[in-house]
Simulated scan of single mutants.
Amino acid sequence: MGKVITGDDPQTLVSTEWLAAHLNDPDLRIIDASYYLAEMGRDAKAEYDAAHIPGARFFDIDEISDRRSDLPHMVAPVEKFMSRMRAMGVGDGHQVVVYDGMGLFSAARVWWNFRLMGKSDVAVLNGGFPKWQAEGRPVEDMPPIIRDRHMTVQRQAHLVKDVTQVASASKLGDWQIVDARSPARFRGEEPEARANLRAGRIPNSRNVHYATLFNEDGTMKEGDALRAAFEAGGVDLDKRIITTCGSGVTAAILMLGLMRLGQEDVSLYDGSWAEWGQFEQLKVETG
């Protein structure tokens, strides 16, 4: 276990106050990583075009992904990620701040994407665009002026797990598997939105609903309160952890919280339930 992080930290979370103070820094790059499930009825790109934090670039989670996979928004190959970031003017030497329109939802997924590519100077905006707007901070509807920036990538393979590795962890118990989905979905009491997916959970997994990590204002809990959210789900913070969810988005929120608590031995199951739930040969628990 490393050091517990509280307050502003440019490698995990920063406040709206921090971002406002650094808004004109020449090496700051802001990314709007808004993403919505179909049932939310929201258009992330249209909302970005209408209003975003000044200078923000739009990161399309579904497009900047491995389109060869049948699974939703699997992490992009290194070359694709590099080319998309260069086109967005994001590269070496930049401090990146990622936000989304829900408050703290899909931004953590993009934060994890950068971490996976070896970029540590990246933070999530705590409370996201809703908090920024509620405080009356500046927004704009103009696209930023882009200048190409080279990006050097060193993929950190230990930050991601595939289905074979997760199946081994489920069987051997050498990693804790922590599921960010709602308790009803975790117990298999609620049908899955995606077609042909069984209901239930990965055997021997634990449940920490991502929403339990938040304060009432949508910011992430800190210190003892954050620790209590994980411990309430039966998680031993001294043991290594794999996070999972429906399709690898909210699993990244758990990873962000765990890193704030000093847990450095944590990995994300990219395929998550969208993958596990479709294969009949993989066991499922319910109840």
Rank of each mutant, 00 (worst) to 15 (best):
P143Y: 03
G101S: 05
G103A: 12
R137W: 13
A107L: 05
D121G: 09
G101Q: 05
V97G: 07
G118W: 04
L104T: 11
V98P: 10
F114V: 05
P143I: 01
N126E: 06
G136V: 08
V97Q: 14
F114E: 01
A134C: 06
D141W: 01
L125M: 11
S120C: 06
R115W: 04
A107C: 12
L116C: 07
L104W: 14
M117G: 10
V97F: 06
R115K: 15
R137N: 13
N113G: 13
W132G: 02
W132Y: 08
G118L: 11
L116G: 02
G118D: 02
G101L: 02
L116S: 00
A123Q: 08
P144G: 06
W112N: 07
W112G: 04
V122S: 10
A134R: 12
V139Y: 04
N126D: 15
E140M: 01
S120H: 14
A108T: 02
Y99P: 05
S106P: 12
I145H: 15
P130K: 02
W111S: 02
M117Y: 09
V98L: 08
G118P: 09
Q133K: 15
L116P: 02
A134Y: 12
G136N: 13
D100N: 07
E135L: 14
A108D: 03
P138R: 09
F114S: 06
A108L: 05
W112Y: 08
R109H: 06
R137V: 11
L125Q: 06
P138G: 09
A134I: 05
D141P: 01
K119E: 15
R137A: 12
G101A: 13
D100W: 00
W132D: 09
F114R: 01
L104K: 10
P138N: 10
M102T: 15
P130V: 00
A134T: 08
V122L: 07
V96W: 10
S120P: 02
F105W: 06
N126C: 07
Y99S: 10
I145C: 13
K119T: 14
N126P: 05
A108N: 02
